[in-house]
Design a protein around this nucleic acid. Structure first.
Lengths: 117, 117
DNA sequence: GCCCATAGTATCGGAAATGATACCGTCATG
DNA sequence: CATGACGGTATCATTTCCGATACTATGGGC
């Protein structure tokens, strides 16, 4: 059910590079983590920030991030449901990585913008 | 023929993160770039450093890296063939990204080793 | 009674990424 | 004349990922 990533990983030195990439690949995880760096968000709040993601994708990506220990999922027993997502301590260790990605993207692609809510 | 990556990219702010990831995803590119950071390498030298990659995969990944302007491919008209791969200036701009990935991997996974040739 | 919001699941199908395997050309060596 | 080194291609099968769509539960407001 939960995807079986992080399989063989049989490179030699630069293996650490691959290992890290395995965690943040998946088309949406990078951005999700980026947004969570700025604070706790509810499910639909994340969704608004990722206009093209489907509900299913967001759910699975969040589940994987949770499974990998980067994200904390807090369910409030209310109706309508309320679920908050935030970074764990381990999740925050990815900050330098995410920011390096962001920086490169800003400087080398057509995305130097930041639209505040 | 050449894969059509870098498609929609319709996230809002953290888009730059995704944009960068699109270039270095692909299961092998990260490591390839990492090894090339240390200097020019021939085809089979790279292959030795990535025990599990198939010839086809190495070729396609290198072609994509070349297409994206990160890698320079130099063919020497000799027999047997000799082809060298090195980073372009643009390729070197990825160094902080690669090193951030490497560092995180070293500190947070079971890959704190570096086996010298 | 009916609709809405929230945070999901379930199911299906297609596209894309990766892997396995076999083959190619040329010259040097034995 | 067979073999090996090097840097590939070609073809096919499989795995994996991703998207579209439909469905669910519950309580509050109208």
């Amino acid at each position: 059910m939960t995807r079986i990533r992080h399989k063989s990983l049989a490179c030699s030195p630069g293996c650490a590079v691959e290992a890290t990439l395995q965690y943040i690949d998946g088309k949406w995880k990078g951005v999700i983590l980026y947004h969570l760096l700025h604070g706790t968000l509810r499910f639909n709040e994340i969704r608004k920030r990722l206009p093209n993601i489907t509900q299913r994708m967001l759910t699975t990506q969040l589940r994987e991030l949770e499974h990998d220990g980067f994200v904390l999922r807090t369910v409030y027993p209310e109706v309508p449901p309320k679920v908050e997502y935030s970074l764990t301590t381990r999740g925050r260790t990815l900050e330098p990585v995410i920011m390096a990605l962001k920086k490169w993207g800003d400087e080398n692609t057509a995305f130097g913008q930041d639209t505040p809510p």
